[in-house]
Amino acid sequence: MDLDTGVALSRHDDHVDPFPVRRAEPAHAVPAGRMGYDLGAERLLLHTVQSAEAFESLLTTGTLRPDPELAEEAFTDAYEWIHRMMAARLPTRGEGALWFWARTRRKHLVDTCRRSRGRVLLTCRVPRERVLLSHFDEWHLVLNKGLGMPRLPGESEDDAFARWEEEHDDFDARLRAAGMRDAPVRDWPADLRTEIEKSWESIFDRGNYGPFECWQGTTHALNNDEVLEAVRII
């Protein structure tokens, strides 16, 4: 360990880490200044916080893959859907998804680190074609089985919400009439399931949203040559 920089120069006498590794308090885990996100870049700047065990797996094997067992059971429908979208839209294959911030505020990332002591912040650059980008806030509509409905050009926030409420109430009434209001999406009648899942695809279209909103990314795997830096959060 270089005590001046906090960078681990090697793990073993015969092994040098493929990227810088340092230890830092949450406030210093994220470098000061502009984050530098660019959703149109060929290689996307991404951040993810992983467990110490996952980080060791990356160092040992050279590749980090998701553990599908870690997905929250309450949101099985949402995760199964995003996995299907990844299979359809990405050239890669795999089980589950690794989750990244593709654009967020520095303050939010620091706050995430404050809740993640003992874990590891990874700063990465991953080829754009291997990342499925989705709008962070609208992803919660998928989690909560709500209709996806982005704001129309020139539409106010209040008008957009009123339009969404009307459409949501109509959809909910049809779902109740089918006796499926509390059933998993996978058990819904095919027409209702297709309708809501098609509406969710709006979260992938950057044109539906403003230029400064938060985006997340999912991949099937992360390779160690795509990591720029690792910070053990203390």
Rank of each mutant, 00 (worst) to 15 (best):
T194S: 14
D111I: 01
T5W: 06
R117T: 15
T123K: 07
R186S: 14
F55H: 11
W188R: 04
C113M: 01
A97L: 03
M149L: 14
L90E: 12
V7R: 12
T104P: 00
M1C: 03
V49M: 09
S57N: 11
E226P: 09
L70H: 04
R206S: 11
I234W: 08
L59W: 06
Q216N: 11
R128D: 09
L59N: 11
E53M: 05
D191H: 12
R128I: 02
G179L: 07
R93S: 14
L70P: 00
R22H: 07
D67G: 02
T218D: 04
E155V: 05
S202V: 13
T104G: 10
A160L: 01
L147S: 04
T76D: 14
L109A: 12
R128A: 15
E42S: 15
R65A: 04
L3E: 13
V185Q: 12
A177V: 00
T112M: 13
R22M: 08
L109G: 12
R181V: 11
F161R: 15
D111L: 12
E213P: 00
S134Q: 11
N208C: 15
Y37N: 10
A102R: 03
F55K: 01
I234K: 03
R232N: 03
E197H: 01
A71R: 09
R119Y: 04
L59Q: 15
K198L: 06
P127L: 06
L3R: 14
P20L: 07
D187E: 15
E165C: 13
G33V: 06
E25V: 10
D158H: 12
R43C: 05
V126K: 00
T48Y: 04
A162S: 13
S199D: 04
A97T: 03
G33E: 08
V120H: 07
R176Y: 00
Q216K: 05
F204I: 07
N224Y: 06
H83K: 00
G217S: 06
G40Y: 08
D191F: 03
L121F: 07
E213G: 09
L147A: 02
R232Q: 07
I196Q: 05
C113N: 00
W99P: 00
D159K: 10
A87E: 14
E42N: 12
I82D: 05
V49K: 04
F136I: 05
